[in-house]
């Protein structure tokens, strides 16, 4: 079996893979990083979104072998080592941006990718960017509100509908 090595959340990681091993399975099963979720396994839902060399990618639709040498960031790499939440995570908590929480890792990673390329998005831009992230609790209003808050914008006038 071939070996793959990459950097995951700033630390070197390697393991044995098959050709067909998906990145999400390598993260979850080999590295034990189960924060990245598999919702649909058909690249629709976005629960498996991680960053590959700084870009949001659906980890269920990329082979682990293709991540050789890449910098991967997962939801486990967002909070500070002492447990202090990343500002996006803190905003999700503050604004009730999650209900069951299953989609949240992907939502947070997509939001982080958005804010990295567009630090102060409009509400429409946030909704557009989340096109590939599905929340079955229909919590979109508060998710959008949380992301706008994390971008430093005043969300006091955005009603929680």
């Amino acid at each position: 079996m071939p070996e793959v090595s990459m950097t995951v959340n700033g630390k070197p990681a390697k393991g044995q893979i098959e050709g067909r091993t998906l990145l999400v399975d390598f993260l979850r099963d080999t590295l034990g990083l189960t924060g990245t979720h598999v919702g649909c396994d058909t690249s629709q839902c976005g629960a498996c979104v991680v960053h590959v060399d700084g870009r949001a990618v659906k980890a269920c639709t990329m082979f682990a072998a293709e991540a050789e040498g890449a910098e991967i960031r997962t939801i486990e790499g967002m909070a500070e080592p002492d447990g202090t939440l990343h500002p996006i995570q803190a905003a999700f908590r503050e604004h009730h941006g999650l209900q069951c929480g299953f989609c949240t890792p992907g939502m947070v990673m997509s939001a982080a990718a958005l804010l990295a390329e567009n630090p102060t998005p409009t509400e429409a831009e946030v909704r557009d960017y989340l096109e590939g992230n599905i929340c079955r609790c229909t919590g979109y209003h508060n998710i959008v509100k949380a992301i706008l808050a994390a971008s430093g914008q005043d969300v006091s006038r955005i009603a929680a509908e």
Binding site: S43, V52, V57, M62, A113, G132
Partner: peptide, 9 residues
């Protein structure tokens, strides 16, 4: 095309 994560691959 697709969504942002799809467009990145």
């Amino acid at each position: 095309i697709g969504d942002p994560a799809v467009r990145n691959r």
